[in-house]
């Protein structure tokens, strides 16, 4: 019974928190300087990690798909298999998970540490809305940066897919790209890229929420960071299921 009520209490508090952030985000004064700092923190600093993860996934996909497609005599489909797999699913989900790990833990720990040392109270006591300054800027940065990071993961994934393929059986990059994107439309690629804005909302919202409701010293800070990563990753994967179906229905 306790777990069920805790579950509903958590969701209720998350809803109230989201409403507070939303109200603060749409009313002035706008915290442009902090937003730009967070765009850099979430975007530029996650780029190497996301690009590397994308490249690794592209290489693995290339190796696995080559072996599977060879069995069915469909090796010619390899570029398409890699491009579609990376751009439709692997790029977005890997970006979502990598960012929920790096940024989720960072935001969760930073805000939790500020909370237990009364720095968030000090911000509020200085007549500054912490939902606007701390939460809205971080969540917005996550929403704006996730699609851009996804494009980077897609690019390195496709490139490393080609590189892995060409090491075994030389093929030019132009040929690989032409083959991979043959018959593709923007409708195929834009919705999966932009769905990561929802991942950004999830990562930013959960990390800020967990950080700003922390209690209990160093242990609380550690718990907030762990919970931010675990919950953000879990909800990114669950949201992906819903979003894929949504995209299939509305962008066939």
């Amino acid at each position: 019974m306790g777990i069920v009520s805790d579950f509903f209490e958590w969701f209720g508090s998350l809803g109230v928190f989201f409403w507070q952030v939303l109200k603060a985000a749409v009313t002035p004064p706008y915290e442009w300087r902090e937003l730009i700092r967070q765009l850099d923190e979430v975007g530029s600093k996650s780029l190497p990690l996301v690009a590397t993860a994308g490249a690794a996934i592209g290489a693995v996909l290339s190796m696995e798909a080559r072996s599977s497609l060879s069995r069915f005599g469909a090796k010619a489909m390899l570029p398409s298999a890699i491009v579609y797999s990376v751009v439709l699913e692997m790029g977005p989900i890997i970006t979502g998970l990598v960012v929920s790990g790096r940024v989720g833990a960072g935001i969760g720990a930073e805000l939790a540490s500020m909370k237990v040392t009364e720095q968030i109270d000090a911000i509020e006591a200085s007549a500054i809305n912490p939902y606007r300054l701390l939460a809205a800027t971080r969540i917005l940065a996550c929403i704006l940066m996730l699609p851009l990071l996804t494009l980077a993961a897609d690019a390195t994934g496709v490139f490393s897919g080609w590189l892995t393929q060409t090491l075994v059986e030389p093929v030019s990059l132009r040929q690989f790209i032409n083959g991979g994107f043959a018959g593709a439309t923007f409708n195929d690629f834009l919705p999966p890229t932009f769905k990561t804005a929802v991942f950004g909302l999830i990562v930013g919202l959960i990390a800020c929420f967990q950080g700003m409701r922390t209690r209990g010293g160093a242990e609380g800070v550690g718990r907030a960071a762990t919970n931010s990563v675990v919950l953000a990753s879990l909800f990114v994967i669950l949201a992906d299921v819903v979003l894929v179906k949504f995209i299939q229905v509305f962008f066939p």
């Binding site: 040392t117 720095q119 006591a125 007549a127 809305n129």
Partner: peptide, 23 residues
């Protein structure tokens, strides 16, 4: 509410027990 309190908070200075400086 938090935003309504803002004008009054500007008239007050608060020193926290552990200073609560932004680290």
């Amino acid at each position: 509410s938090m935003d309504q309190l803002g004008e009054f908070r500007k008239k007050m200075g608060f020193l926290f027990q552990h200073a609560a400086l932004y680290d």
